[in-house]
Design a protein around this nucleic acid. Sequence first.
DNA 1: TTATTATATCAATATAGATTGATATATAAT
DNA 2: ATTATATATCAATCTATATTGATATAATAA
Lengths: 101, 101
Amino acid sequence: MIKNCCSVVKSPKKNLTGVEKFLKIISEENRLQILYLLREGEKCVCEIYEALGIAQNLASHHLKVLKDFGLIKSRKEGRKIIYFADRKVINKYINLINKLF
Amino acid sequence: MIKNCCSVVKSPKKNLTGVEKFLKIISEENRLQILYLLREGEKCVCEIYEALGIAQNLASHHLKVLKDFGLIKSRKEGRKIIYFADRKVINKYINLINKLF
DNA sequence: TTATTATATCAATATAGATTGATATATAAT
DNA sequence: ATTATATATCAATCTATATTGATATAATAA
């Protein structure tokens, strides 16, 4: 323990329960735009990258990040992949943020 | 405009009004911990870096980032600098996030 | 079968920002 | 005046991740 002007506090760090990871993921502009877009309903990849004005592979990358964390899900329809938001997971983190602040 | 399977949408990107920047700033664990700590009330730098278990200069750096964005303010007291949260600004962004989701 | 379309993946590069170490500045104490 | 304390700043390095270009895969159409 460091001795300085201040009283020494024990185990003061809040357990953030992954909320920082959520924040990191949605703090990327394209991903935030994707989540916002999916509020309207499910979209295929080409709708998403076109709406955002970004390259197809870049959209795929960001979709993977969002999906790996569980914020969105996907289903197959012919040769398209349709993505949609998982409101339950998203709401969980939004509630955590509101409690934190 | 790209021709693909999807209808072409006009100007679909949401104006995020700086919320991504806010999210980027609070998505850093140490900064989130600082904001959480400052819920208790104002703290000097040494209390903050000790509570977080990080180096003094690193704490100073993160405090600067938070302050430059307007989430915290500071005042001088002897040789100490006391930091405190600006709830008004923080709440503004939290409300934006809630509207966005 | 061949060509086209939609998406994903991979490797390389670019970039932002976190961390560290050293030092500067300002205040207070001796 | 010298020393100690509290904080900030600067330069260097490290690390994570966004972006790009090329290619792979899978489904459909011709």
